[in-house]
């Protein structure tokens, strides 16, 4: 498989959660992911940024088929896995991995670190005990939990948050996956270790040529992880582009607001009020008509309320869901 080939292809993906099953009324849905399309190359790392409730976690987990998609397709290496049953998915489970947000909750407290890392290998009937031991050592070394002899027999409660997250990363790597989804992997860690973990993730991603989806609400951390940025708002990806270009010249008003809201450490901050739109993300049961950002948008036009914007590509490699960028 060459570098340029698509590993993952997501087409108009939807995941609606049923809110209420009425006996007589029609059911209500939370449209957590509502028509998302993108492609991911082999070995490509992207950052998926959105606020809580934007559907970014749902999108990540739906791609991993932890949720059953409501509509659209997910293709990996050209194979459609959208509706495969769990027993047909074992190979997909082997090629994908998830890194959870909460390192304290993501590891079973009653297993030793060795056992935690061995579990995926046992499930996928990987080698014998000796080969598994070897693989566990390998991944522990990769995440630099050394000396291995010290860490392998320990239990999760004996480790710090950063160390736990390293174990979680190691576990994601045991089966040598091609696609890894990391859901806010550093948001629960202390600021001083965040960068350390992000650097590690980046390094492993490059070394192993893993296609990586880094999900976060924190735009500042994406800079150190990937070149490509996906901005998600209210169930849709509203902007895609290169990190630096997006940061310096956001195309979508929402991206702009997001960037304005973030304080860098600067004592002048206390003198100014931030120019951010009021309000909060919409309820996804009844999202606004047209563009979902229009009720908060400072550049709102008539068309924004009426028609949902399609994908525009005002610059090469930059995609945006906003009427401001419609070809004049």
């Amino acid at each position: 498989m060459s570098e340029d080939e698509e590993l993952l292809e997501v087409e108009n993906l939807r995941k609606w959660f049923e809110l209420r099953k009425g006996l007589f009324s029609s059911p209500l849905y939370v449209k957590a992911v509502d028509g998302v399309s993108f492609k991911l190359k082999k070995g490509e790392a992207i950052s998926l940024v959105g606020e809580s409730g934007s559907g970014k976690t749902t999108l990540g987990k739906t791609i991993l088929r932890l949720y059953e998609p409501t509509g659209g397709t997910i293709k990996i290496k050209g194979r459609d896995i959208t509706h495969l049953k769990s027993n047909e998915l074992m190979w997909y489970r082997r090629e994908t991995a998830l890194i959870e947000q909460d390192p304290y909750g993501a590891l079973p407290s009653f297993f030793s670190i060795h056992r935690i890392l061995e579990e995926p290998l046992i499930i996928h009937k990987f080698g014998n005990a000796e080969e598994r031991r070897k693989r566990v050592r390998e991944v522990l070394e990769e995440v630099r939990l050394t000396p291995i002899e010290d860490f392998a027999p320990k239990y999760p409660h004996m480790l710090s948050g950063g160390q736990l997250q390293r174990v979680a990363i190691a576990r994601a790597l045991t089966l040598r996956p091609e696609l890894v989804v990391a859901d806010e992997p550093v948001s629960m860690l202390d600021a001083s270790v965040r960068i350390e973990i992000l650097n590690l993730l980046r390094e492993l991603q490059e070394k192993r040529k893993i296609s990586f989806i880094y999900i976060t609400h924190d735009l500042t951390t994406t800079k150190y992880f990937s070149e490509k940025l996906f901005i998600m708002y209210a169930g849709k990806i509203v902007e895609i582009g290169d990190m630096l270009k997006v940061v310096h010249n956001p195309l979508h008003p929402y991206t702009e607001a997001l960037l304005k809201a973030i304080p860098d450490p600067d004592p002048r901050n206390r003198e100014i009020l931030r120019d951010v739109p009021p309000g909060e993300p919409p309820n996804l049961v009844n999202p606004p008509s047209g563009c979902r950002f229009h009720p908060r948008c400072p550049y709102k036009m008539d068309i924004c309320q009426k028609e949902e914007p399609p994908v525009f590509e005002p610059e090469n490699g930059r995609f945006v869901l906003c009427w401001l960028h419609a070809k004049k």
Binding site: E51, S52, H217, D218, L219, A257, L258, K260, A261, I262, P263, R270, L273, R274, V276, P277, P278, E280, P281
Partner: peptide, 15 residues
Amino acid sequence: LDVITQANIMNLLKK
């Protein structure tokens, strides 16, 4: 809170 909401709350606290 989300960053935009956070910025709004911070604006409020400053005022």
